[in-house]
Structures are given as structure tokens and as C-alpha cells.
Design a binder for these strands. Structure first.
Lengths: 205, 205
DNA sequence: CGACTGGACTTGTATATACAATTGAACTTA
DNA sequence: TAAGTTCAATTGTATATACAAGTCCAGTCG
């Protein structure tokens, strides 16, 4: 994504040049992992292109795992190092299927956030690094059973936010996406928390 | 990418609903591999969204490997089946490095095309299926050595057109991208062809 | 002091519009 | 017939504009 034109013809499209501009600054060490990169409007002024063009460039780089974006906050350079920390946990869908019940999941939350200190430490990231956060409610025959609160290192699973967790569990998704390198995460299967009780109740209708 | 909303909040974005619309028709069997899907303008009329929204949906689905687009012609459902046909071929970059020379490559062509009958047969695709086509000139210490003319099955390497083949050889790229399933291709290392002579000469300055 | 409230800034989505580039078919012409 | 030309259809890119949604901070008010 850095070198010369990709299609031999005319000039490189502007959104590609924006991408190359970003990549160059990252690979050159100007912008390091966790750093905030210039906002869309700043890049518009600097590179003299429209915001939509900048937006496309940043969106694609995010999809490719080089950047992480948080709405309302900014765009950040993703943490680079691959992580090899495998935490095995039981597959809730499988467990429910074994009991002869029908498994379903409801996505309560799925977005990018800034990690708090604990999460960042657990994932081996810088403080304030952006992470993907999902909250699912797993159900057996329509009865809410378990809340899964999960934080994922964006680098190892760029497509996480686009996944359809009603059709595939995060576990399966991560296994498919990052077969070799694995991702750390945190799961609460708890009960007492008021917030969790509310989530479970919301599905009991 | 099919089911309910991905981010728990508001209504699903329109470009996502367009994607779901397409995916549903493909998975439902209405549109089969190789079929042409409705044009952007047709989808605009049918789904009552702007062309830019349709364009984004189709572009993303193409990047995900479900569709293949050819400018001036149309959008087609990608061939689904994974192919397990491994053709081992020597790594030109490695070979040059072994001789103590510096390897470089020049991208002469990199785009999507309709396969002719021979290519389609070799790749196990329907006639007129879209394929990715690249032409590289490999050089040792600046001296053009070999022309590599390669056709790749788009399904197994969705990101092929975005790759930077000045930095990584197609071989390495395909090994990284499709580690298990492998892709067939065709390589000419020939000489006599007038077109190839021209390519080699162009780099001799 | 604590809580709330605006407002500025940022990203996310959507539209209308425009032009470029490519393809393929129909047509024309030598 | 064969070659060249025109033309419509399609995708590719780019812009200006607008509003929604989320975050953060400073200021205000109780």
C-alpha cells in the first residue's frame, strides 16, 4: 500500500495518496502506536482534498488494521505488535447445543472505545489505546443465560466491528480471523451487577 | 454481515442494508456465481438510496470477496468454491537474492478482467468470470530479467488489487493471504513475444 | 464542591452532482 | 468484409453540503 501506482494507468487516485501519506508517517516513525493522527478536517486543509476523500482513506486504513477510530474523539495509530496470549474459554454456543437447546445471541453493544487502565494492561496496550468492545447476551431457547463482555485488541481482528454476532460467536470469529495469533479478552459471566441484570431482563419478554 | 444491526443503537445504516440485500439474494440462490448483479443505477431506483451509498456497499462487498466488479461492464457474483490446486513455482526474488543481486519489480498491469476461455478453464471458473490479472517485470540489479503474467481467482485473494508488488512478490502475498487454500495461476517467463520484449526494453534505460 | 449544561470538535452517514475511464454494441465507411 | 467511429451503459473517483451522534471541556448554577 505504499509504493508506486497500483493500476498502471493515470495518476494515483487521491484517496490512495492520502493513504500513502498516512502510512508513510506511520512507517517513518513520525506517528507512533497510540498517537492521535490529524483529524479529517486537518487533513482536508493540509492535503487539499475533500473530507469525503479523507474519510474514505481513513476508513480503509482502519479496516486494514493500521488505524483505530473513535467517534467524537479521534483517529489513532493502531498498536502494532501481534499478541500471542491464548486464553481458552468454553464455547457457550456449543455448550447450549449439547444440552439440546437452541442458542441465540443478542448484540447489546459493539464499538470502539478507549481502554481504561485495567483493560489496557490486560491487553498489553498503551493507556488510552483504542479497543473493540462487545457485549452479548447469550440465550438458550430464548431464555437469557449469560452476558459476555469482551474487549479485543483491534490489530489482531480488524473486522471485528463488522461481524454479525447473531450468526457467529466472537470465539468462532476470532478463530477464523486470527488463526495463528490469538487475542486476549475478558469475559464476565456474572449476575449481581445491576447493569447486567437489566440486560438479561430486557430479553425475558 | 447478514443478520441484525451490528451496533446496538439506532437504525441500521443504509449502506449496510444494501449489503444485506445483496448478500441475501446471493445466499438465497437468486443470484448465482458468475451472474451479473443489478447495476448501481438500478439499485438506486430499487432501493431508493443515493448512488454513493450503493457504491460504498458494492465496493465493500467486493473487498470482502463476495463480488467482482469490472469498470465499464458490471458487477458479478464471485465464484464461491475454494480451490485447492497448488502449483509450486520457484520464487524469483529468492533466486535473485541467492545470486547476490538486488531484486526489484515493476508493476506493469494490475486490474480485474473477464477471463477468456483458456484462463477460465485453468482456474476452474465459468466462462467470462472476472479474474485479477497482474503483469510484473522482475529485475536483478536493475536489469529486467523476467516477465510474470499472472491470473488469480478473485475469491481466494480479495485484496490482490491493493497489494504493493514492488514490496512483496505475488507469491509471498498469496502465501500470506490464503495460507490454506491456494490459488492457481499462470506464469510466462518467455522471451519471443513482441509485447514482452517491449516491457523488458522499457526498463532497460 | 458537585452536577448540569452548552458548545466546540470529531467521526459517521447520506445525498446530489459532476466528470473520467472503460467496455461493448451498434453503426458507418472504405 | 473489415476496420474504424459513435454512443449508451457501467464503474471509479471527487467534491460540496448537510445532519446525526459521540466526546470532552469549560463554564454555570445550585
Amino acid at each position: 500500500m505504499s509504493g508506486s501506482a497500483a493500476t498502471q494507468n493515470g495518476p494515483t487516485p487521491r484517496y490512495r495518496r492520502v493513504k500513502e501519506f498516512i502510512v508513510k508517517h506511520i512507517e517513518g516513525g513520525d506517528w507512533r502506536a497510540g498517537d492521535q493522527v490529524p483529524s479529517e478536517s486537518a487533513l482536508v486543509k493540509q492535503l487539499k482534498v475533500s473530507r469525503m476523500t479523507v474519510n474514505r482513506a481513513l476508513r480503509e486504513l482502519t479496516h486494514e488494521g493500521l488505524l483505530v477510530r473513535v467517534q467524537g474523539t479521534g483517529t489513532f495509530v493502531a498498536e502494532k505488535r501481534p499478541i500471542f496470549n491464548l486464553v481458552e474459554l468454553r464455547n457457550i454456543a456449543e455448550e447450549i447445543a449439547e444440552r439440546g437447546q437452541r442458542h441465540a445471541a443478542r448484540v447489546e453493544l459493539l464499538n470502539a472505545e478507549k481502554a481504561n487502565q485495567d483493560i489496557a494492561r490486560d491487553l498489553g496496550l498503551n493507556a488510552n489505546a483504542a479497543v473493540y468492545h462487545s457485549v452479548l447476551v447469550h440465550m438458550a431457547d430464548g431464555i437469557p443465560l449469560q452476558v459476555e463482555d469482551r474487549f479485543v485488541n483491534p490489530v489482531t481482528a480488524p473486522g471485528y466491528l463488522d461481524a454479525d454476532f447473531t450468526a457467529i460467536t466472537p470465539n468462532e470469529f476470532l478463530m477464523q480471523t486470527a488463526p495463528a495469533t490469538e487475542v486476549e479478552h475478558i469475559v464476565e459471566a456474572a449476575m449481581p451487577d445491576a447493569r447486567i441484570r437489566k440486560l438479561l431482563k430486557r430479553n425475558a419478554n
